[in-house]
Simulated assay, not measured.
Amino acid sequence: MIRRYLPEIDTLRAIAVTLVVLFHAYPGFVPAGFLGVDIFFVISGYVISRAYLFPVLERRTTLADFYSSRFRRLAPALFLTVMLTALASFVLLKPVDLAIFGQSLLLQPFYLQNFSFWLGGDALTPPLANPLLNTWNLAVEEQFYLLLAGLCLLTTTRRQFFWPTLIGAAALSFVFYLVFGTMGVSPHSAFFLLPGRFWQLALGVLVFCLVRKIREAPQPPRPILSIIAVGAIILAPLVPAYPGPLAVTVKTLVACLATAGALALFELDREHYAVLRVRAIRYVGKISYALYLWHWPLLSLAVAVQGRLLTPVEATLALVVAAGLASLTYHLVEMPIRMRRMIRNRRVLLGSFLVASAAILATAMAILFTSGAFR
């Protein structure tokens, strides 16, 4: 039987967001902390399959219900962060930087901002240049959901084609990742575009499919295997390796496969060591989405104000503020809307989205038409 909630998944989220945040705040401390994003993609694919994919495939729920739930989960915190970041950027950024910011702001409501960053240059230079750069992966995730929904619709009457098509697409995506990323044809494309990331999200989907097939196995795995898998996730970004794209690829594969293995073991095991359910760690996992959204704009705008990279003390202060904002966002925005304590009606939710989108688009157009100098 598939359990409704796995607390260990929040532990994985906590590890992933900690790696990303430390990488952005102290890049020399965890130089491979970017693997946290790869871990997030695998988790997302798994969670989506666990909660929505099979009910949709088996017609126990609809795609409209799926997108409504995803919107309630992801959009409120994102739009709050984007609007407040836009306001702060308007006040703090120079016109030339504000104009660049406007390009990515314009695409936020359409979840196409990853194309803006793809066209805009290297992912990490200049460092912390765009306060919304961290939203690229949210666009990739939404694009994956659209493709998955399209696959569901195309195979409505021929369900036997769904899994071979998904596996084939994942294989092609991995080839794209190897050719454009590892072999250096266009690392920028492998980083920012869905074809280079599809395999990671699909890995989560396929692992849950496998778990669903074998969950009634008479001999469940031993809990120690879960500890080993989580340990591999933590160690992968920390183990020194020779620089170069091949080393990055190996680390990425280790992190993604270890995440997939840990998720499967969490589902199949009925007993876990308490270390995988520490309440404080799980809380970081619960607020991980909001923490991911807040930490980058704060670091980026602080760099813009200072005109230099932050000292460790300044970066730590920014992260403390980000954690506080993430906690408030989780309790006052995310959960009330997600649990329908606020905005219960779907039409009201859609109306709120359209109003927020219009405000964001109007701001972006004003910035772009005046090249960031209209203030």
Rank of each mutant, 00 (worst) to 15 (best):
Y289H: 07
H272Y: 00
H295I: 02
Y292D: 08
I287R: 00
E267T: 09
V254P: 03
G285F: 06
L257E: 03
V275G: 07
L263C: 07
S288F: 01
L293G: 06
C256G: 13
L268H: 12
T249E: 05
L293D: 03
V278K: 08
E271Y: 06
A247S: 15
L257I: 09
L263P: 01
R279K: 15
R279L: 10
L263Y: 02
I281P: 07
A258P: 11
R282T: 12
Y289W: 07
A258I: 05
Y273G: 13
K286N: 15
V248Y: 01
R270I: 03
H272I: 00
A264W: 00
V284L: 11
L246N: 03
L265C: 05
A258M: 09
C256P: 10
T249R: 04
F266P: 02
G261A: 06
G285D: 09
A264T: 00
A247N: 06
G261C: 06
L263N: 02
T259S: 14
Y283F: 12
T252G: 15
A255I: 04
A247H: 05
V250Y: 11
C256S: 15
L265I: 04
A290V: 00
A280T: 12
L257F: 14
L263W: 00
I281F: 08
K286L: 15
R279N: 14
V254A: 14
F266D: 03
G285E: 09
A258H: 08
V250D: 11
A255N: 10
L246T: 05
T252A: 13
Y292A: 07
E271W: 04
V278Q: 11
L265H: 03
L263T: 02
Y273K: 07
R282H: 07
R277Y: 00
I281H: 08
T252V: 03
W294N: 05
C256E: 14
F266K: 04
Y292L: 06
E271L: 06
L246E: 01
K286M: 15
D269A: 12
L293C: 09
E267G: 09
L276W: 09
H272C: 01
G261T: 01
L291R: 05
V250Q: 12
A290H: 01
Y273V: 08
L246K: 01
T259E: 11
V250A: 15
E267V: 03
C256H: 10
L257N: 04
L257R: 04
F266W: 03
R282M: 14
K286P: 08
V250G: 14
L246C: 00
A247M: 04
V275D: 08
I281W: 11
F266T: 02
P245Y: 11
R277G: 11
K286F: 08
Y289N: 08
